[in-house]
Simulated assay, not measured.
Amino acid sequence: MVDSFKELRDKVTWPKYKELQNSSTLVLIASVIFALVIFMIDKVFENAMNLYYSAF
């Protein structure tokens, strides 16, 4: 455990606050875009299935 603490204290480079903010914002935006793409794909498939099943 002492080795782990020494490694965290001496060898790990921690991001600056501004860099952390930028990365978090990028992840948030990418997640929203990804969710919107999945939503649109789901709606396309839903409409296709409704169209298919209404034909019978």
Results as ranks from 00 to 15, higher is better:
Val27Ile: 09
Tyr17Met: 09
Glu19Met: 03
Val27Thr: 08
Asn47His: 08
Ile41Tyr: 05
Pro15Gly: 07
Asn22His: 08
Ala55Lys: 15
Ser54Gly: 13
Thr25Leu: 15
Ser31Phe: 00
Asp10Leu: 12
Met40Ser: 06
Leu28Trp: 11
Asn50His: 07
Val37Ser: 07
Glu7Ala: 14
Lys6Ile: 12
Ala55Arg: 14
Ser31Asp: 05
Phe45His: 00
Val27Trp: 08
Glu19Thr: 01
Glu7Trp: 15
Tyr52Cys: 07
Trp14Leu: 01
Ile38Gly: 09
Pro15Ile: 05
Met49Asp: 12
Ser23Val: 04
Glu19Asp: 02
Tyr53Arg: 06
Val32Ala: 09
Asp10Pro: 04
Glu46Val: 11
Asn22Leu: 05
Met1His: 06
Ser54Arg: 13
Met40Tyr: 03
Ala35Phe: 02
Ala48Phe: 07
Val12Asn: 03
Ile38His: 04
Ser54Thr: 14
Ile38Asn: 08
Leu51Cys: 14
Phe39Gln: 06
Tyr53Cys: 10
Val12His: 04
Asn50Gly: 05
Ser31Cys: 04
Asp10Cys: 10
Lys18Leu: 04
Tyr17Val: 10
Val27Met: 08
Asp3Leu: 07
Ile41Val: 02
Leu36Phe: 12
Lys18Phe: 02
Val12Tyr: 02
Val32Cys: 07
Val32Ile: 09
Met40Asn: 01
Asn50Leu: 09
Ile29Cys: 07
Ala35Arg: 04
Leu51Asn: 15
Tyr17Ser: 12
Asn47Asp: 08
Lys18Asn: 02
Leu51Gln: 15
Ile29Tyr: 01
